[in-house]
Simulated scan of single mutants.
Amino acid sequence: MGTPFLITIATMALLSSLAIASDPSPLQDFCVAINDPKNAVFVNGKICKDPKVVNANDFFFQGLNVPRNTANRQGSNVTAVNVNNLAGLNTLGVSLARLDFAPYGLNPPHTHPRATEVLFVLEGTLNVGFVTSNPPNNMKNQLFTKTLNPGDVFVFPEGLIHFQFNVAKTNAVAFAGFGSQNPGVITIANAVFGSDPLISADVLAKAFQVDKKVIDLLEAQFLK
């Protein structure tokens, strides 16, 4: 992608620096994460690598310029760059992701429980939106939605259900910045109909006000 890709990365870096991180503020210059299953220390994040053995590769990730495979049922692919694959992000409260969409591909309704998301569209046309939390007095949840073109930016507040949908016949690419080193993701349909073990069909039938056969059909989609 050349120059447009470099502009994207610079933009996302700026957006991330402006984000209000929800993770705790660091108490040192850096705390490079280390995965050590034999270590019995539990912290809110990851334990730190000894600074004396930290090197530049701990702060390095490459390949975000490479298009990802979108040949799946949703027609989308999210490449996350967070503390789990870029250890130097530990305690720094930021991360990012690349989003690839096939024509009419969807990043289905989901939430990030620990982060606000800032989305930047590089290529294509996306319809995006988020829904507010439950309002008082039995009012309806409000949907905020917008159609985005290259160069457009949209913000999804922390914890709220949101989505991105490619409304064009061509591929789309976007980049997202997060105010957390590990935003987490809860895909609504997967969590509700594909949990292990499954949520009781009686519970879901009553919640969605449908026949249990509909719930059985929906759950069967996630057992394939």
Rank of each mutant, 00 (worst) to 15 (best):
K206V: 13
V54I: 09
V203E: 03
L14N: 10
A174G: 05
V155T: 04
A189M: 01
Y104M: 03
A33W: 10
N82R: 08
F175S: 04
K206D: 11
A115P: 12
K212N: 10
V131S: 03
L218S: 05
T91P: 00
T147Y: 12
D202T: 06
V173L: 04
Q28S: 08
G124S: 13
A207Y: 12
A191R: 03
L119W: 13
G88Y: 05
N141A: 13
V66S: 09
P24D: 01
A168N: 10
G105M: 02
D196V: 11
G93Q: 01
A168F: 14
N182H: 13
G63T: 15
A97N: 04
M139H: 15
G184L: 08
I20E: 11
L122C: 06
K212D: 12
L106S: 07
T91G: 01
D152T: 10
L14G: 11
L204W: 04
K213E: 07
A201I: 14
T3N: 14
V128K: 03
S133C: 14
A87P: 15
Q62C: 08
A115D: 00
A71C: 11
L14S: 10
D50V: 11
L92V: 06
N82F: 15
N82L: 03
T79L: 01
R73G: 12
N90I: 00
A10H: 09
K213Q: 10
F120G: 01
A189G: 01
D100F: 15
N84W: 08
G159A: 03
M12P: 09
P108V: 02
F120I: 02
P108Y: 02
V54C: 00
D216E: 07
D58M: 02
E117R: 07
N166L: 05
L14I: 11
P135C: 06
F175R: 12
G75N: 04
Q209A: 11
P113D: 04
V118C: 08
Q221K: 15
T3P: 07
V167C: 03
T8D: 13
N190H: 09
K206H: 13
V53M: 03
F120A: 05
I186Y: 14
N134I: 14
V167E: 07
L27K: 08
T147S: 03
N65R: 10
I215G: 01
A56N: 04
L92K: 07
T91I: 00
P103V: 06
G75A: 02
L160Y: 02
G105V: 11
D196I: 15
N149L: 14
I215S: 05
N141H: 14
D216F: 11
L198E: 13
T70M: 07
G105C: 09
I199L: 08
I9E: 05
S180D: 00
D152I: 12
S180N: 03
L15K: 11
A102Y: 07
N77C: 12
N141P: 10
V203C: 00
